[in-house]
Design a protein around this nucleic acid. Structure first.
Lengths: 180, 180
DNA sequence: GAGATATGTCAACAAGGCTGACCCATTTTG
DNA sequence: CAAAATGGGTCAGCCTTGTTGACATATCTC
C-alpha cells in the first residue's frame, strides 16, 4: 500500500518527452484512428460469429480472387494453422470456395461466392465512409498525400506486395499470368 | 459431392469493386501500415516478456503521469480486469508505481519510474523513426495534414480525449492553444 | 450509518496468434 | 521410376489479451 515508493522506485511526475524528438502525437493518433477504424466492421462481423481474422481473409480473397493459400499466408503474415481455423469457417458457411489449381493440382485457388462478396462489401462500406468523411475534413485533395504517407510507413520489402494488388480503380487480375 | 463448388456456391472470378466507391487502397494501406508500425516495439517487448497491452499502458502512464486507474481505463477502452493483469506486472517489475490520491484516497495515481520511462522511450523511438522516415518521403510539410486526417478518423466523441493529452511539441505554455 | 464509488481480485471463457508433429496428394528431381 | 520436395490440411497444446460476472475492501458523500 505504501511500500511501492521504496528505494529506486521514485515516481516521475514530469510529462513524457516534452522536448524529446519523439512523434508522440502521430503515434497516439495512429492508435486511436486504427482502433476506431476497425470497430465498424467488428459490429457486423459479430452477427455471423466472425472476427477480425475472418474479415482480413475475406477481404483479400475478394481483392485477389484466385489467390492460393500460400499467397494469402504471405499477405497476412500468419501461420498456416492460424489461417486454417478461420478459412475453414468461411468455406463451411459458403463465403469462400476453393478450386483446384489448373496447373498445379496441389494448389487451392480461393474465390469468394456471391455471399462472400456481399459480406466483404458490407464490411468495406462503413470503413470507406469513415475514410471519406475524414478526407472531407482534411481537404479532399489530400488523398494522394495520405496514401503516400501510409505506404511509406510499410516495411520497404513488403511494399512490393501492395503494388501487386489490383488498382482499385482499374483493371482486374484474373487475366494471364505474366510469366510461366 | 465433397467438391466445394456445389450448387449455389459458384466462385466469383472478377476483382473486387472495380468501379464501386470503396476506399480499398486506403483500407489496405491502413492495415499494412499499422501492422508494421506495431512490429517494431513488439521485438523489444518480447525481451521483457511483455506484450502490446503492456506497451499501451506504459505509454499513456508516461504521457499523462499521475492519471488514475479509471482515467486509464477510459483512454484504453478495455475492462478493469484486462488492465489489472498487465498493470500488476508493470508494477511488480518496477516500471510503474502507484501513489494514493491526495484528495481522494481511494484513487491510485499512476506514475512511471525511471525504468518505466526508459522503456517507454525505447519503444517510442523506432516508431518515431519510422514516422519521420515516412514524412520525409511524403514531404516534411505534410505532418499537419496527416495529423488532421488521422484525427478525423477517430470517433468524434473520443476526440476530446486526444485534445486532453499534453501537446508533445510546440508549447502552449505561452499562450492559447493553437486551434486544431 | 447507509450507500455510492474506486480499486482489486477470483474464475471462467473466447478469439486469434504461435509451435511442433504428421498426413496426403502431387510435382519435381536424381 | 523411386525418392524427395512442395502445397495443403489437421491434431494438440500453449500464450496473450480481450470479455462477463461476482465479490471484497477502502473511502467518500449524504
Amino acid at each position: 500500500m505504501n511500500r511501492h515508493e521504496a528505494a529506486g522506485e521514485q515516481p516521475i511526475r514530469t510529462a513524457f518527452a516534452v522536448g524529446d524528438d519523439l512523434e508522440l502525437d502521430l503515434i497516439e493518433l495512429l492508435f486511436f484512428a486504427y482502433r476506431d477504424f476497425t470497430s465498424d466492421p467488428d459490429q457486423i462481423l459479430s452477427v455471423d460469429g466472425f472476427g477480425r481474422a475472418h474479415h482480413r481473409v475475406l477481404h483479400f480473397v475478394n481483392r485477389m480472387p484466385g489467390l492460393t493459400v500460400a499467397e494469402l499466408l504471405d499477405v497476412l503474415k500468419i501461420t498456416k494453422q492460424s489461417l486454417a481455423r478461420v478459412l475453414k469457417q468461411l468455406i463451411d458457411t459458403g463465403h469462400i470456395v476453393q478450386v483446384q489449381g489448373p496447373k498445379d493440382r496441389r494448389q487451392r485457388e480461393l474465390y469468394p461466392t456471391a455471399k462472400g462478396r456481399e459480406l466483404a462489401f458490407a464490411l468495406a462500406l462503413p470503413q470507406s465512409r469513415r475514410i471519406r468523411a475524414a478526407l472531407r475534413e482534411t481537404g479532399e485533395d489530400r488523398r494522394e498525400v495520405i496514401g503516400r504517407f501510409l505506404k511509406a510507413m510499410v516495411d520497404p520489402e513488403l511494399r512490393a506486395q501492395i503494388d501487386r494488388l489490383p488498382d482499385s480503380r482499374s483493371s482486374e487480375r484474373d487475366g494471364e499470368p505474366s510469366d510461366d
